[in-house]
Design a protein around this nucleic acid. Structure first.
Lengths: 119, 119
DNA sequence: GTAAAGCTTCAACCCAGGTTGAGAGTCAAG
DNA sequence: CTTGACTCTCAACCTGGGTTGAAGCTTTAC
């Protein structure tokens, strides 16, 4: 059981961000009588997954959507939560990349046309 | 010479966005005595480039940075403006993709471990 | 010559994703 | 039993990238 400061330091995020993410409903903590947030291993794991998802460019809205979709089922919950997101993201990225590469080719051609025989 | 409404419709963006982008210094227009914004082909071309750059995930700050870097030189200006941005972005994407793919492999393995011989 | 459509500025608002700070309670150590 | 470190809530603020709306010109069309 971590307290907020410990977990924040451990995962290198701000305490305020942890409070914010909880308020937004994407992570959870356990409250003791003193009112402090405590985080067990499940809470921590979920947080780590959320952070990864954010790094990959998912918005909190997308994350919430997948969480709801998937409900609170059995075990490989978090992986099953993450996999569809990943697959979606990979597809998007593949598409983006292809567009970019096409545009780069176009650009390079343009540049060559516009810099005829200067030297 | 387009007026703002025409250009906005043509490129499928809002008029307010055109005003905003001008205020932010990333595009320009020509003012006539009546106070209206008019857009010549150069203005339009630059706008199109900015819009593409935005689609590719560049922030206005990044765009401004490249614009300043590159000053207002000669001709293939806009391509030379776009190329370094593209190259940077491509690198970033390549990196992201590799991370993602590694993570996906990890995930898939995990899922398999966690769903042993269920049926 | 008047109405509608188009344009102007300016200030206020919106959303996401947080951060900051005040005022107050909790806990461990000396 | 007080000090310092830690935590709580709540409200206000911030940034980026715009949107919305009011009040007032200009231009076009009849």
């Amino acid at each position: 059981m971590y307290r907020i400061g410990q977990l924040a330091k451990l995962l290198n995020v701000s305490e305020s961000k942890l409070r914010f993410l909880e308020e937004q409903g994407v992570i959870h903590s356990v409250r003791q009588a003193n009112g402090y947030r405590y985080y067990n291993d499940d809470n921590k794991e979920r947080l780590e997954i959320i952070l990864k998802a954010q790094q990959m460019g998912f918005s909190l809205a997308e994350i919430r959507a997948v969480q709801r979709q998937h409900g609170s089922k059995e075990h490989p919950v978090d992986c099953q939560l993450l996999l569809p997101m990943l697959q979606k993201k990979l597809q998007e990225l593949d598409q983006q990349m292809q567009q970019l590469q096409q545009q780069r080719r176009d650009m390079e051609q343009l540049v060559q046309q516009l810099t005829p025989v200067d030297p």
